[in-house]
């Protein structure tokens, strides 16, 4: 029998007055998974996460975290670290004081020095938060989320504003957490991060969870595309369409059709210009979703 889900969202609806921000959303996140909740702006991700985090009550439906209500902070918070979308630290406290305070209230045990080292803020330990850059504040936020190695970490747009080194360091820290069995829920606008790291992805649009699955499951619903140009006077290969002056072939059999295209070009002595071919990416699934 599989473990009980770490997060169990069933029929969640969140309304603000007459506006339904989240409509009948259901999903589960299992132990050790990295689940990415993605969506367009206003898709309902933040409202969904706020209910999961216990910051907002569901209008209807149920949400259980480790089998308990998200509102039961004393039971859940010691097992759950939250990286908010906006920092929320007092500008008059130092970095070290901020981690000490939030860490001591987390219900977990850790060393502030260790956590600051993980996020590369050791040299800023004595600096007040008001003097940190945007990226440093995000790292401070991450430090409090992973303090004490929680079983569940919620990362709300964790890498926004981070330089490439800080991003790498953050994902290294997430990888180390996952090696200890932690579950991670992620929202991000950087789709390549989700594509590269998520075990499963939920795609939200206009308040609904439109699609859910692994990257492979999501991308195989759309054809891959081969694009190329032709020199003047060259014959056109069969079964191609033209878009924006370039020729394209949509296919669910990328390798076979690419092979056939190259064979045709070789046979007719045509040099294909700007040839591009690749598997469907998450961006394409996202665009298709937005177009619906």
């Amino acid at each position: 029998m599989p473990d009980a889900p770490v997060i169990d969202v069933d029929g969640l609806t969140v309304t603000y007055g007459d506006f339904a921000a989240v409509r009948d959303v259901s999903f589960q996140v299992h132990r050790g998974e990295l689940y990415a909740l993605l969506g367009t702006n206003g898709a309902g991700k933040t409202s969904t996460l706020e209910v999961v985090e216990g910051h907002r009550r569901a209008t209807s439906g149920t949400v259980r975290i480790f089998g308990a209500s998200p509102q039961d902070r004393q039971a859940i918070r010691p097992r759950m670290g939250i990286m908010l979308q906006e920092s929320g630290f007092s500008p008059d406290l130092t970095v070290e004081e901020s981690v000490d305070l939030i860490g001591s209230l987390s219900g977990r045990v850790d060393s502030t020095e260790r956590v600051l080292d993980v996020v590369g803020l050791t040299r800023k330990a004595g600096t007040i938060v008001a003097q940190l850059s945007g990226g440093e504040k995000r790292r401070l936020d991450f430090a409090t989320a992973v303090y004490g190695g929680p079983e569940l970490v919620i990362l709300d747009e964790p890498t926004t504003g981070l330089d490439i080194q800080s991003r790498d360091a953050l994902w290294d820290a997430v990888d180390r957490l996952r090696e200890t069995g932690s579950t991670v829920v992620l929202t991000t606008h950087y789709l390549e991060e989700a594509q590269e790291r998520a075990d499963r992805i939920g795609l939200m649009h206009e308040g609904r969870l439109h699609r859910e699955g692994t990257v492979a499951e999501l991308t195989q619903t759309l054809p891959s595309v081969i694009t190329f140009g032709l020199p003047p006077g060259a014959p056109e290969p069969p079964t191609v369409g033209a878009r924006n002056g370039a020729f394209h072939i949509e296919t669910f059999h990328l390798q076979d059709d690419l092979h056939r295209l190259l064979a045709w070009a070789h046979e007719h002595g045509v040099e294909l210009e700007k040839l591009q071919a690749g598997p469907t990416r998450l961006d394409d699934v996202f665009r298709a979703l937005d177009a619906t």
């Binding site: 918070r77 939250i82 908010l84 929320g88 630290f89 007092s90 209230l105």
Partner: peptide
């Protein structure tokens, strides 16, 4: 001030009641 800079939300993200 604590509410405006989301410090209250931050504190509510901990185990404190």
């Amino acid at each position: 001030s604590r509410r405006q800079n989301l410090f209250l939300k931050r504190l509510r993200s901990t185990a404190a009641g």
